[in-house]
Design a protein around this nucleic acid. Structure first.
Lengths: 223, 223
DNA sequence: TCAAAAGTGTTTGTTATACACCCATGA
DNA sequence: TCATGGGTGTATAACAAACACTTTTGA
């Protein structure tokens, strides 16, 4: 990722790695020694024959020591915007990591999304695309579960959703919807969090369900 | 799009152009003279400084003579799959065109998605990605309207949705949902389609509506 | 005047939201 | 024993789906 190819760089693969801190999303950035910006989204020029996804996994592993719990491509970025590399095009991947397992290597650090340092414009666009992808596919993909440890309480899950959606949810309704979706399985463990009744632990274990085949919904964006 | 760069091709931009024929989606392909496959998805190596979106628009215009009614990027493809070019990475765009305005230039032809000729593997993946994108964002974006002419009857609109969803819809419920979404505006025109009562014409003209802020829905994919 | 397609009022069942309450624990 | 957070039964409102019907035209 550091070595800057001499000329004719084909493309780069950039990994927007996200986790959830106390009450906000955080993005992993790497410190630059000689770039125009002090920080940047981790990236890499793929080896010949290396797939895009493999390159993204390598970037993530170099940053965190282990692969993220979730990875998906969010698109290609270019459009004349500046990038730390000289590549004309960069393929961005979104990676999700539970907060506790996320221990960045030296040179890397988490930044709250609202307090990001200056980034190269193309990487700035990637981060925005990544946060949009998170919000947009919140109920199409198990995003929240990939930001939590393997076992969690329902309150933790609800707080994660509230963080991602940016609004409060109704406790009873949230649990009812969860139950109807057959997404979590209770375990025989409880966790006492100081005061109050201990909470039962759950794990993400979706059973195959027939999707309720509703009709069209017309949730279009504003014009 | 035809000229094959000598070496070190950085990347290509490919346009998956789709329209709706009688009862199925169709994709525009271009005839090859000397490729391994006889047909391919139109593509192009962007000029220096040309943005990705601009390159995609150029590809589409070369194929159809006019820009599509809708265009969006669906991602970067590579992963060692073969492509007509020698580029390691191709950025795919989806373009939607109403069927009547879609008159391909010579060398181009529409193919039903179920009867596609052999394509280079990377382009095959792009077409699959495009159809998935269409199905996936059917109720987040005005896909159906971009496949119809500017004015249309509600039955035409319903048939388009039935084509895209692959299932029948209930007439009264469909219209009720449309009305609730404030997406179409009736015009002072009617069209007589042979026998039966003439249908009123509508146009896509969404009014700003506050999105009903529902909670989480957990429409997760099967594991 | 009948078939065909457009268009609508009303009912029914399902789902979302919320209120109100009980449960278990530590201080 | 009380404050705190976990957990749930039940009512109400909102919505989707369907039925059944009226309207308007061409053959």
């Amino acid at each position: 990722m550091r070595e800057r190819p001499s000329r004719a760089t084909p493309h780069t693969v950039d990994a927007v790695l996200a986790t959830a801190t106390g009450n906000e999303l955080a993005i992993l950035l790497v410190r630059n020694s000689s770039e125009r910006e002090r920080w940047s989204v981790p990236w890499r020029t793929p080896q010949a024959g290396e797939t895009l996804a493999a390159a993204a996994a390598t970037v993530a592993k170099d940053a965190l020591g282990e692969p993220p719990a979730w990875m998906e491509q969010i698109g290609a970025f270019g459009d004349g915007k500046r990038h730390p590399s000289e590549a004309e095009v960069s393929v961005a991947y979104l990676g999700l990591v539970p907060h506790d397992t996320a221990s960045p290597r030296t040179g890397y650090a988490w930044f709250q999304v609202t307090e990001l340092p200056p980034l190269a414009p193309r990487q700035r666009a990637m981060v925005e695309g990544a946060t949009k992808a998170i919000e947009g596919s919140l109920d199409q993909a198990p995003i929240a579960f990939r930001l939590l440890p393997a076992t969690f309480t329902l309150s933790e899950l609800q707080h994660m959703y509230e963080l991602l959606l940016g609004k409060r949810l109704h406790k009873a309704s949230f649990r009812r919807a969860l139950q109807a979706a057959w997404l979590v399985e209770p375990m025989d463990e409880w966790r006492s969090e100081g005061r109050g009744r201990p909470a039962q632990l759950f794990q993400y274990l979706p059973k195959k369900k027939r999707r309720p085949h509703r009709g069209v919904r017309f949730d279009f964006l504003y014009p």
